[in-house]
Design a protein around this nucleic acid. Structure first.
Lengths: 193, 193
DNA sequence: AACTACATGTAAGAGGTTACATGATTCA
DNA sequence: TGAATCATGTAACCTCTTACATGTAGTT
Protein backbone atom coordinates (compact mmCIF):
# COMPACT_ATOMS: atom_id res chain seq x y z
CA UNK A 1 0.00 0.00 0.00
CA UNK A 2 2.51 2.60 1.18
CA UNK A 3 4.57 1.78 -1.88
CA UNK A 4 1.79 3.03 -4.14
CA UNK A 5 0.94 5.99 -2.00
CA UNK A 6 4.55 7.10 -2.34
CA UNK A 7 4.48 6.57 -6.11
CA UNK A 8 1.21 8.49 -6.35
CA UNK A 9 2.63 11.32 -4.30
CA UNK A 10 5.69 11.49 -6.54
CA UNK A 11 3.61 11.28 -9.73
CA UNK A 12 3.62 15.01 -10.40
CA UNK A 13 6.28 16.30 -8.03
CA UNK A 14 9.75 15.12 -7.09
CA UNK A 15 10.18 15.17 -3.36
CA UNK A 16 12.48 14.27 -0.48
CA UNK A 17 11.54 11.49 1.91
CA UNK A 18 10.78 14.13 4.47
CA UNK A 19 8.43 15.96 2.13
CA UNK A 20 6.68 12.75 1.15
CA UNK A 21 5.81 12.21 4.75
CA UNK A 22 4.34 15.68 5.08
CA UNK A 23 2.34 15.22 1.89
CA UNK A 24 0.93 11.92 3.07
CA UNK A 25 0.06 13.37 6.44
CA UNK A 26 -1.74 16.31 4.90
CA UNK A 27 -3.41 14.19 2.24
CA UNK A 28 -4.64 10.67 2.87
CA UNK A 29 -3.20 10.99 6.38
CA UNK A 30 -6.71 10.59 7.70
CA UNK A 31 -6.74 7.01 6.46
CA UNK A 32 -3.10 6.11 6.41
CA UNK A 33 -0.09 6.87 8.56
CA UNK A 34 3.48 6.78 7.30
CA UNK A 35 6.52 6.96 9.55
CA UNK A 36 10.11 7.60 8.48
CA UNK A 37 10.96 4.10 9.57
CA UNK A 38 8.77 2.82 6.76
CA UNK A 39 9.32 5.52 4.13
CA UNK A 40 13.11 5.56 3.94
CA UNK A 41 13.65 1.81 3.63
CA UNK A 42 10.84 1.68 1.05
CA UNK A 43 12.43 4.45 -1.01
CA UNK A 44 15.60 2.39 -1.02
CA UNK A 45 13.78 -0.66 -2.32
CA UNK A 46 11.90 1.37 -4.92
CA UNK A 47 15.24 2.76 -6.14
CA UNK A 48 16.72 -0.72 -6.49
CA UNK A 49 13.66 -1.79 -8.44
CA UNK A 50 13.92 1.24 -10.69
CA UNK A 51 10.50 2.63 -9.84
CA UNK A 52 12.06 5.86 -8.57
CA UNK A 53 15.38 7.60 -9.06
CA UNK A 54 17.28 9.63 -6.54
CA UNK A 55 19.01 12.92 -7.35
CA UNK A 56 21.33 14.62 -4.92
CA UNK A 57 20.78 18.31 -4.56
CA UNK A 58 23.36 20.41 -2.74
CA UNK A 59 21.90 22.76 -0.17
CA UNK A 60 24.64 24.58 1.67
CA UNK A 61 26.58 22.05 3.70
CA UNK A 62 24.17 19.19 3.30
CA UNK A 63 22.79 17.23 0.40
CA UNK A 64 19.10 16.59 -0.04
CA UNK A 65 17.96 13.40 -1.70
CA UNK A 66 15.19 14.17 -4.11
CA UNK A 67 13.20 11.26 -5.44
CA UNK A 68 11.49 11.21 -8.83
CA UNK A 69 9.16 8.63 -10.30
CA UNK A 70 10.27 6.71 -13.41
CA UNK A 71 8.15 5.36 -16.27
CA UNK A 72 8.27 1.96 -14.64
CA UNK A 73 7.07 3.51 -11.40
CA UNK A 74 4.22 5.24 -13.21
CA UNK A 75 3.15 2.00 -14.82
CA UNK A 76 3.23 0.18 -11.50
CA UNK A 77 1.21 2.92 -9.87
CA UNK A 78 -1.41 2.83 -12.63
CA UNK A 79 -1.65 -0.95 -12.44
CA UNK A 80 -2.41 -0.68 -8.73
CA UNK A 81 -4.88 2.15 -9.29
CA UNK A 82 -6.76 0.22 -11.97
CA UNK A 83 -6.80 -3.10 -10.13
CA UNK A 84 -10.07 -4.22 -8.60
CA UNK A 85 -9.49 -4.27 -4.85
CA UNK A 86 -10.87 -7.50 -3.56
CA UNK A 87 -12.55 -6.95 -0.25
CA UNK A 88 -9.91 -4.55 0.95
CA UNK A 89 -10.47 -2.10 3.75
CA UNK A 90 -12.26 1.21 3.33
CA UNK A 91 -8.96 2.90 4.00
CA UNK A 92 -7.24 1.26 1.07
CA UNK A 93 -10.17 2.11 -1.19
CA UNK A 94 -10.05 5.76 -0.10
CA UNK A 95 -6.32 5.76 -0.76
CA UNK A 96 -7.08 4.86 -4.37
CA UNK A 97 -9.90 7.38 -4.68
CA UNK A 98 -7.46 10.00 -3.47
CA UNK A 99 -5.59 9.58 -6.75
CA UNK A 100 -8.62 9.31 -9.05
CA UNK A 101 -8.17 12.90 -10.20
CA UNK A 102 -5.45 11.67 -12.53
CA UNK A 103 -7.84 9.18 -14.18
CA UNK A 104 -10.57 9.66 -16.79
CA UNK A 105 -13.97 10.32 -15.21
CA UNK A 106 -15.59 7.18 -16.71
CA UNK A 107 -12.89 5.17 -15.06
CA UNK A 108 -13.66 6.59 -11.64
CA UNK A 109 -17.36 5.90 -12.22
CA UNK A 110 -16.68 2.25 -12.97
CA UNK A 111 -14.38 1.73 -10.02
CA UNK A 112 -16.71 3.34 -7.52
CA UNK A 113 -19.73 1.50 -8.91
CA UNK A 114 -17.97 -1.84 -8.64
CA UNK A 115 -16.99 -1.06 -5.08
CA UNK A 116 -20.54 -0.03 -4.26
CA UNK A 117 -21.81 -3.36 -5.56
CA UNK A 118 -19.64 -5.20 -3.09
CA UNK A 119 -20.76 -2.89 -0.30
CA UNK A 120 -24.38 -3.73 -1.04
CA UNK A 121 -23.60 -7.43 -0.76
CA UNK A 122 -21.85 -6.83 2.51
CA UNK A 123 -24.84 -4.84 3.69
CA UNK A 124 -27.00 -7.94 3.28
CA UNK A 125 -24.59 -9.87 5.51
CA UNK A 126 -24.73 -7.24 8.20
CA UNK A 127 -28.50 -7.14 8.09
CA UNK A 128 -28.66 -10.89 8.56
CA UNK A 129 -26.30 -10.59 11.51
CA UNK A 130 -28.43 -7.82 12.97
CA UNK A 131 -31.50 -10.07 12.73
CA UNK A 132 -29.74 -12.76 14.71
CA UNK A 133 -28.58 -10.28 17.31
CA UNK A 134 -31.97 -8.66 17.68
CA UNK A 135 -33.73 -11.97 18.10
CA UNK A 136 -31.19 -13.86 20.18
CA UNK A 137 -31.25 -11.53 23.16
CA UNK A 138 -33.47 -9.44 25.35
CA UNK A 139 -31.77 -6.19 24.23
CA UNK A 140 -30.63 -5.56 27.79
CA UNK A 141 -27.41 -7.48 28.29
CA UNK A 142 -26.29 -6.75 24.76
CA UNK A 143 -27.01 -3.06 24.32
CA UNK A 144 -23.40 -2.04 23.77
CA UNK A 145 -22.62 -5.04 21.60
CA UNK A 146 -25.62 -4.15 19.47
CA UNK A 147 -24.53 -0.53 19.39
CA UNK A 148 -21.26 -1.47 17.70
CA UNK A 149 -23.19 -3.40 15.10
CA UNK A 150 -25.40 -0.40 14.50
CA UNK A 151 -22.34 1.75 14.10
CA UNK A 152 -21.01 -0.64 11.48
CA UNK A 153 -24.27 -0.56 9.56
CA UNK A 154 -24.49 3.20 9.84
CA UNK A 155 -20.96 3.65 8.57
CA UNK A 156 -21.55 1.23 5.73
CA UNK A 157 -24.70 2.98 4.61
CA UNK A 158 -22.97 6.34 4.81
CA UNK A 159 -20.28 4.94 2.54
CA UNK A 160 -22.88 3.66 0.08
CA UNK A 161 -24.43 7.10 0.01
CA UNK A 162 -21.01 8.61 -0.53
CA UNK A 163 -20.50 6.29 -3.51
CA UNK A 164 -23.84 7.32 -5.01
CA UNK A 165 -22.82 10.96 -4.94
CA UNK A 166 -19.14 10.75 -5.82
CA UNK A 167 -19.39 8.22 -8.64
CA UNK A 168 -21.38 10.73 -10.72
CA UNK A 169 -19.22 13.65 -9.64
CA UNK A 170 -22.07 15.05 -7.58
CA UNK A 171 -22.08 17.97 -5.20
CA UNK A 172 -20.09 17.04 -2.12
CA UNK A 173 -22.20 19.37 -0.02
CA UNK A 174 -25.10 16.93 -0.28
CA UNK A 175 -23.08 14.57 1.91
CA UNK A 176 -24.90 15.90 4.91
CA UNK A 177 -24.50 14.69 8.42
CA UNK A 178 -27.27 12.48 9.76
CA UNK A 179 -27.27 13.72 13.31
CA UNK A 180 -25.09 15.31 15.95
CA UNK A 181 -23.20 18.55 15.62
CA UNK A 182 -23.92 19.97 12.20
CA UNK A 183 -21.39 22.83 12.33
CA UNK A 184 -18.99 22.92 9.46
CA UNK A 185 -20.65 21.71 6.31
CA UNK A 186 -23.41 24.26 6.10
CA UNK A 187 -24.25 25.83 2.78
CA UNK A 188 -23.59 29.28 4.17
CA UNK A 189 -20.04 28.48 5.07
CA UNK A 190 -19.32 26.61 1.88
CA UNK A 191 -20.51 29.40 -0.40
CA UNK A 192 -18.09 31.86 1.13
CA UNK A 193 -15.33 30.31 -0.96
CA UNK B 1 -5.47 -5.54 21.38
CA UNK B 2 -6.24 -9.13 20.44
CA UNK B 3 -4.99 -10.12 23.85
CA UNK B 4 -7.82 -8.22 25.51
CA UNK B 5 -10.40 -9.25 22.99
CA UNK B 6 -9.58 -12.87 23.83
CA UNK B 7 -9.78 -12.16 27.56
CA UNK B 8 -13.10 -10.37 27.09
CA UNK B 9 -14.44 -13.26 25.05
CA UNK B 10 -13.41 -15.72 27.74
CA UNK B 11 -14.80 -13.56 30.54
CA UNK B 12 -18.08 -15.45 30.85
CA UNK B 13 -17.44 -18.62 28.85
CA UNK B 14 -14.51 -21.02 28.63
CA UNK B 15 -13.74 -21.75 25.01
CA UNK B 16 -11.35 -23.51 22.66
CA UNK B 17 -9.08 -21.49 20.40
CA UNK B 18 -11.30 -22.47 17.52
CA UNK B 19 -14.42 -21.20 19.29
CA UNK B 20 -12.72 -17.95 20.24
CA UNK B 21 -12.13 -17.27 16.60
CA UNK B 22 -15.74 -17.86 15.72
CA UNK B 23 -16.89 -15.63 18.56
CA UNK B 24 -14.60 -12.82 17.48
CA UNK B 25 -15.72 -13.17 13.87
CA UNK B 26 -19.38 -13.02 14.83
CA UNK B 27 -18.86 -10.25 17.36
CA UNK B 28 -16.37 -7.42 16.85
CA UNK B 29 -15.35 -9.15 13.62
CA UNK B 30 -16.56 -6.09 11.77
CA UNK B 31 -13.74 -4.06 13.30
CA UNK B 32 -11.14 -6.67 14.05
CA UNK B 33 -9.92 -9.82 12.35
CA UNK B 34 -8.28 -12.69 14.21
CA UNK B 35 -6.58 -15.59 12.47
CA UNK B 36 -5.49 -18.86 14.06
CA UNK B 37 -1.91 -17.83 13.45
CA UNK B 38 -2.39 -15.04 15.96
CA UNK B 39 -4.81 -16.68 18.38
CA UNK B 40 -2.95 -19.90 19.20
CA UNK B 41 0.45 -18.35 19.93
CA UNK B 42 -1.27 -15.68 22.01
CA UNK B 43 -3.15 -18.28 24.06
CA UNK B 44 0.21 -19.88 24.77
CA UNK B 45 1.65 -16.60 26.01
CA UNK B 46 -1.44 -15.85 28.08
CA UNK B 47 -1.11 -19.27 29.71
CA UNK B 48 2.53 -18.66 30.59
CA UNK B 49 1.57 -15.33 32.11
CA UNK B 50 -1.22 -16.94 34.08
CA UNK B 51 -4.00 -14.85 32.58
CA UNK B 52 -5.73 -17.98 31.30
CA UNK B 53 -5.59 -21.67 32.16
CA UNK B 54 -5.95 -24.56 29.81
CA UNK B 55 -7.98 -27.67 30.58
CA UNK B 56 -7.85 -30.75 28.42
CA UNK B 57 -11.20 -32.27 27.67
CA UNK B 58 -11.37 -35.72 26.12
CA UNK B 59 -13.72 -35.99 23.16
CA UNK B 60 -13.59 -39.44 21.62
CA UNK B 61 -10.14 -39.91 20.16
CA UNK B 62 -9.05 -36.36 20.42
CA UNK B 63 -8.49 -33.86 23.19
CA UNK B 64 -9.90 -30.36 23.11
CA UNK B 65 -8.05 -27.57 24.82
CA UNK B 66 -10.48 -25.41 26.69
CA UNK B 67 -9.23 -22.07 27.92
CA UNK B 68 -10.60 -20.28 30.98
CA UNK B 69 -9.82 -16.81 32.27
CA UNK B 70 -8.15 -16.45 35.68
CA UNK B 71 -8.55 -13.69 38.26
CA UNK B 72 -5.34 -12.15 36.98
CA UNK B 73 -6.74 -12.25 33.45
CA UNK B 74 -9.94 -10.58 34.61
CA UNK B 75 -7.99 -7.82 36.31
CA UNK B 76 -5.86 -7.24 33.23
CA UNK B 77 -8.94 -7.12 31.05
CA UNK B 78 -10.64 -4.60 33.31
CA UNK B 79 -7.53 -2.43 33.43
CA UNK B 80 -7.54 -2.30 29.64
CA UNK B 81 -11.26 -1.62 29.53
CA UNK B 82 -11.03 1.23 32.01
CA UNK B 83 -7.94 2.83 30.49
CA UNK B 84 -8.40 6.04 28.54
CA UNK B 85 -7.44 5.23 24.97
CA UNK B 86 -5.22 8.00 23.76
CA UNK B 87 -5.98 8.81 20.19
CA UNK B 88 -6.46 5.21 19.23
CA UNK B 89 -8.38 4.12 16.19
CA UNK B 90 -12.15 3.93 16.01
CA UNK B 91 -11.80 0.18 15.75
CA UNK B 92 -10.00 -0.13 19.06
CA UNK B 93 -12.58 2.11 20.70
CA UNK B 94 -15.42 0.00 19.32
CA UNK B 95 -13.65 -3.10 20.59
CA UNK B 96 -13.87 -1.64 24.09
CA UNK B 97 -17.47 -0.55 23.70
CA UNK B 98 -18.28 -4.10 22.67
CA UNK B 99 -17.50 -5.16 26.24
CA UNK B 100 -19.19 -2.24 28.03
CA UNK B 101 -22.19 -4.40 28.89
CA UNK B 102 -20.14 -5.83 31.73
CA UNK B 103 -19.51 -2.36 33.19
CA UNK B 104 -21.74 -0.07 35.26
CA UNK B 105 -23.76 2.32 33.09
CA UNK B 106 -22.17 5.47 34.58
CA UNK B 107 -18.82 4.11 33.57
CA UNK B 108 -19.86 3.69 29.97
CA UNK B 109 -21.24 7.22 29.98
CA UNK B 110 -17.94 8.63 31.17
CA UNK B 111 -15.85 6.69 28.70
CA UNK B 112 -17.98 7.58 25.70
CA UNK B 113 -18.19 11.23 26.75
CA UNK B 114 -14.44 11.47 27.09
CA UNK B 115 -14.00 9.90 23.69
CA UNK B 116 -16.55 12.28 22.19
CA UNK B 117 -14.59 15.22 23.56
CA UNK B 118 -11.52 14.12 21.67
CA UNK B 119 -13.58 13.60 18.53
CA UNK B 120 -14.83 17.17 18.74
CA UNK B 121 -11.27 18.43 18.94
CA UNK B 122 -10.32 16.34 15.95
CA UNK B 123 -13.33 17.70 14.11
CA UNK B 124 -11.90 21.19 14.45
CA UNK B 125 -8.67 20.00 12.86
CA UNK B 126 -10.50 18.46 9.94
CA UNK B 127 -12.54 21.58 9.41
CA UNK B 128 -9.39 23.66 9.27
CA UNK B 129 -7.93 21.26 6.75
CA UNK B 130 -11.11 21.42 4.71
CA UNK B 131 -10.88 25.22 4.64
CA UNK B 132 -7.36 25.02 3.23
CA UNK B 133 -8.41 22.47 0.64
CA UNK B 134 -11.48 24.43 -0.42
CA UNK B 135 -9.53 27.64 -0.84
CA UNK B 136 -6.29 26.33 -2.30
CA UNK B 137 -7.77 24.84 -5.46
CA UNK B 138 -10.26 25.41 -8.22
CA UNK B 139 -12.31 22.37 -7.17
CA UNK B 140 -11.64 20.70 -10.50
CA UNK B 141 -8.29 18.97 -10.19
CA UNK B 142 -8.98 17.98 -6.60
CA UNK B 143 -12.52 16.69 -6.65
CA UNK B 144 -11.65 13.15 -5.59
CA UNK B 145 -9.08 14.27 -3.06
CA UNK B 146 -11.71 16.53 -1.54
CA UNK B 147 -14.22 13.71 -1.63
CA UNK B 148 -12.04 11.60 0.67
CA UNK B 149 -11.82 14.49 3.09
CA UNK B 150 -15.59 14.83 3.03
CA UNK B 151 -15.92 11.14 3.73
CA UNK B 152 -13.65 11.54 6.73
CA UNK B 153 -15.69 14.43 8.07
CA UNK B 154 -18.93 12.60 7.42
CA UNK B 155 -17.73 9.50 9.21
CA UNK B 156 -16.47 11.54 12.13
CA UNK B 157 -19.75 13.37 12.53
CA UNK B 158 -21.66 10.12 12.31
CA UNK B 159 -19.50 8.82 15.11
CA UNK B 160 -20.13 11.92 17.20
CA UNK B 161 -23.86 11.41 16.70
CA UNK B 162 -23.47 7.79 17.64
CA UNK B 163 -21.74 8.84 20.87
CA UNK B 164 -24.58 11.26 21.69
CA UNK B 165 -27.12 8.48 21.47
CA UNK B 166 -25.22 5.57 22.96
CA UNK B 167 -23.68 7.39 25.92
CA UNK B 168 -27.14 7.94 27.39
CA UNK B 169 -28.32 4.47 26.41
CA UNK B 170 -30.63 5.96 23.78
CA UNK B 171 -32.72 4.19 21.19
CA UNK B 172 -30.40 2.71 18.59
CA UNK B 173 -33.08 3.05 15.94
CA UNK B 174 -32.57 6.82 15.92
CA UNK B 175 -29.19 6.16 14.34
CA UNK B 176 -30.75 6.66 10.97
CA UNK B 177 -28.95 6.69 7.69
CA UNK B 178 -28.38 10.11 6.13
CA UNK B 179 -28.73 9.12 2.49
CA UNK B 180 -28.44 6.21 0.14
CA UNK B 181 -30.27 2.92 0.43
CA UNK B 182 -32.40 3.05 3.54
CA UNK B 183 -33.44 -0.58 3.51
CA UNK B 184 -32.78 -2.39 6.71
CA UNK B 185 -33.14 -0.10 9.66
CA UNK B 186 -36.77 0.80 9.15
CA UNK B 187 -39.08 1.02 12.12
CA UNK B 188 -41.35 -1.55 10.55
CA UNK B 189 -38.67 -4.16 10.41
CA UNK B 190 -37.32 -3.41 13.84
CA UNK B 191 -40.69 -3.67 15.55
CA UNK B 192 -41.26 -7.17 14.22
CA UNK B 193 -38.97 -8.48 16.95
C1' DA C 1 -17.47 -42.38 0.36
C1' DA C 2 -17.02 -37.77 0.25
C1' DC C 3 -17.43 -33.45 2.08
C1' DT C 4 -17.77 -30.02 5.49
C1' DA C 5 -16.83 -28.43 9.89
C1' DC C 6 -14.07 -29.05 14.02
C1' DA C 7 -9.54 -28.53 16.00
C1' DT C 8 -4.50 -27.31 16.75
C1' DG C 9 -0.63 -25.80 15.57
C1' DT C 10 4.08 -23.91 13.00
C1' DA C 11 7.25 -21.28 9.96
C1' DA C 12 8.22 -17.64 7.07
C1' DG C 13 7.74 -13.29 6.20
C1' DA C 14 5.10 -8.93 5.31
C1' DG C 15 4.67 -4.64 6.93
C1' DG C 16 4.93 -1.95 9.73
C1' DT C 17 6.20 1.10 14.69
C1' DT C 18 9.26 3.12 18.21
C1' DA C 19 13.21 4.73 19.77
C1' DC C 20 17.57 6.00 18.82
C1' DA C 21 21.38 8.59 16.52
C1' DT C 22 22.93 12.46 13.99
C1' DG C 23 23.41 16.78 12.16
C1' DA C 24 21.99 21.23 9.27
C1' DT C 25 19.10 25.22 8.69
C1' DT C 26 16.03 28.81 9.86
C1' DC C 27 13.91 32.06 12.60
C1' DA C 28 12.86 34.69 16.79
C1' DT D 1 21.79 31.42 21.22
C1' DG D 2 18.31 28.50 21.62
C1' DA D 3 14.33 26.24 19.77
C1' DA D 4 11.86 24.46 16.05
C1' DT D 5 11.92 22.37 11.88
C1' DC D 6 14.34 20.20 8.20
C1' DA D 7 16.52 15.91 6.90
C1' DT D 8 18.24 10.97 6.79
C1' DG D 9 18.70 6.96 8.43
C1' DT D 10 19.17 2.28 11.49
C1' DA D 11 18.04 -1.48 14.72
C1' DA D 12 15.15 -3.85 17.42
C1' DC D 13 10.92 -5.29 17.86
C1' DC D 14 5.92 -6.26 17.40
C1' DT D 15 1.86 -7.87 15.52
C1' DC D 16 -0.12 -10.07 12.76
C1' DT D 17 -1.14 -12.85 7.94
C1' DT D 18 -0.54 -16.66 4.74
C1' DA D 19 0.34 -20.98 3.75
C1' DC D 20 1.35 -25.24 5.27
C1' DA D 21 0.68 -29.58 7.92
C1' DT D 22 -2.21 -32.77 10.26
C1' DG D 23 -5.90 -35.24 11.79
C1' DT D 24 -10.95 -36.10 13.92
C1' DA D 25 -16.06 -35.88 13.89
C1' DG D 26 -20.30 -35.41 11.98
C1' DT D 27 -23.31 -35.25 8.02
C1' DT D 28 -25.15 -36.39 3.43
Amino acid sequence: MLEFIILGTLYYHSLTGYDIRKCVEGGIGMFYKASYGSIYPLLGRLSEKGAVVCTDEAQGKRTKKIYSITDLGKREFMTWLEAEDTGDSIESFMAKVFFFDQLPVEFAYEKISAYEERLLEYQDNLMAKKEVFDKANGKKDFYYKLSTLYFGICKLQSLIGWCETVKIGGDLRTLQVPFGKKEGITDAEYSKN
